[in-house]
């Protein structure tokens, strides 16, 4: 569990509560896996502060995430206030290893490092692995996919389309 909170300040007692809150767009990931929780502390008995950062500025999931966190804390008997943080800007490096694996199993290729990402999206290099059959004989269909954070790829072996989560650093 430690790697989930490597880049953030989170009270251990609050981790199980936050780990119940799923990302609304990729429900196999929790908000901790996504790395969007930057700070979560108990300030007094049964009262906590949570600071969130958006993945992309226009991420429409942020309001839903804030509501879901409030629900989860209320259920756990906490009063919670939520703040939105812009700095430091979210990075795909903050997605946990567990999150990356869950994402791949869900059918979304996890982000590559920045250089490989550029080669895949700009120079059409075949390095993004098909999430279904594992082939790297894949082709970029669109730099923007079903959401702003993803690009659309197609596997030229099994012919399935799939999303690639773009590197943001």
């Amino acid at each position: 569990m430690d790697e989930l909170i490597e880049h953030a300040e989170i009270d251990g007692e609050l981790i199980p509560i936050l780990d119940e809150v799923a990302d609304p767009e990729i429900p196999v990931l929790t908000v901790l896996d996504m790395g969007v929780i930057r700070y979560a502390k108990i300030i007094k008995t049964r009262e906590a502060i949570v600071k969130l950062t958006p993945t992309y500025s226009g991420c429409p999931a942020m309001d839903v995430i804030a509501d879901d966190i409030t629900d989860a804390f209320t259920k756990a008997g906490f009063k919670v206030s939520i703040e939105l943080l812009l700095a430091p800007a979210w990075s795909t490096d903050w997605i946990s290893e567990r999150g990356r694996n869950a994402m791949e199993a869900y059918g979304i290729a996890a982000p590559l490092n920045p250089i490989a990402d550029k080669a895949a999206l700009l120079d059409g290099e075949k390095i993004v692995k098909c999430t279904l059959c594992g082939s790297i004989n894949t082709k970029l269909v669109s730099q923007f996919g079903s959401t702003a954070c993803k690009a659309l790829f197609k596997c030229e072996d099994c012919l399935e389309p799939f999303d690639y989560f773009k590197c943001l650093k």
Partner: peptide, 13 residues
């Protein structure tokens, strides 16, 4: 989809 995603980024900003 690309144009509307770019639009969404701009609205977020």
């Amino acid at each position: 989809i690309a144009c509307t995603n770019i639009s969404l980024d701009l609205f977020g900003q």
